[in-house]
Design a protein around this nucleic acid. Structure first.
Lengths: 133, 133
DNA sequence: CAGTATCCTAGCCGATACTG
DNA sequence: CAGTATCGGCTAGGATACTG
């Protein structure tokens, strides 16, 4: 059936709808929360500390979204004092696998990108200087 | 250099800085533009049409960001009439490879997520109904 | 065609305060 | 501890008009 792993991504009839999913997953926080949960079950405050920089509001919103989409489960161990654990579902675990290459890429190519930014910004500043002459 | 592919992602000292890169790449539009350019060189209007739903302003902003980070090149073939081609750099090409698993995941798991959303929303509505009784 | 320049607003998101 | 509720600022980003 005519292999088409990469080039057909755009031609796929589901591609348009896939954007809804990507929009969810590719937002500022979901990626990090998912990655952290990949290390195992975590409690709310634990997540908040380990993700770093996220507000409790955004953590709540993000977790509810992930729960709604069947990527994360919320288990109540005790109501008082509250002890609630978040954990990846099997589906969520496959998402971690899918995002890992991207995370690794970002870490590995950090310096290349920094360098490129420096060059671009230098050139741009130079142009502005020339205009001011 | 002590292998550490998955579990160490969070412990990596570069992980914090990696977020800057991920924040750039994992935004609403960059992912799609990069994916489209994976199919080969494209012109501005071509991109605008094929990405679909993106405003010319956002396409410009996105392309400048990708260019700044050394992921995309901008080649002027002709100034008047304007004929400008956008193309992935070698670095940009490696990014496509890194994002492909995520895009494929979204397409493959669309129905699972739809189903989960339906269940979650049903349950939630039910709870609200009980409160109103 | 390939942009730039402006204006304007929906909604994201942080800060803060309160609760079981 | 693990949230919910509310308010308000800010900005991402769309619409529109103009240009080389």
């Amino acid at each position: 059936m005519s292999e088409m792993v990469d080039h057909s991504v755009c031609g796929n009839p589901n591609a348009a709808r896939a954007r809804e999913v990507l929009d969810l997953v590719a937002d500022k926080w979901s990626l990090y929360v998912i990655a952290k949960l990949g290390d195992g079950e975590q409690r709310f405050t634990e997540l908040k500390r380990s993700v770093g920089g996220i507000s409790q509001r955004m953590l709540t919103v993000t977790l509810r979204g992930l729960e709604r989409d069947g990527l994360v489960t919320r288990t109540i161990y005790s109501a008082m004092p509250p002890n609630i654990a978040y954990r990846l579902t099997p589906l969520g675990a496959t998402l971690v696998d899918a995002t890992t290459p991207l995370v690794m890429w970002a870490i590995e190519n950090l310096s290349s990108i920094d360098a490129a930014r420096g060059r671009y910004d230098d050139d741009h500043v130079k142009e502005v200087r020339e205009l001011n002459r």
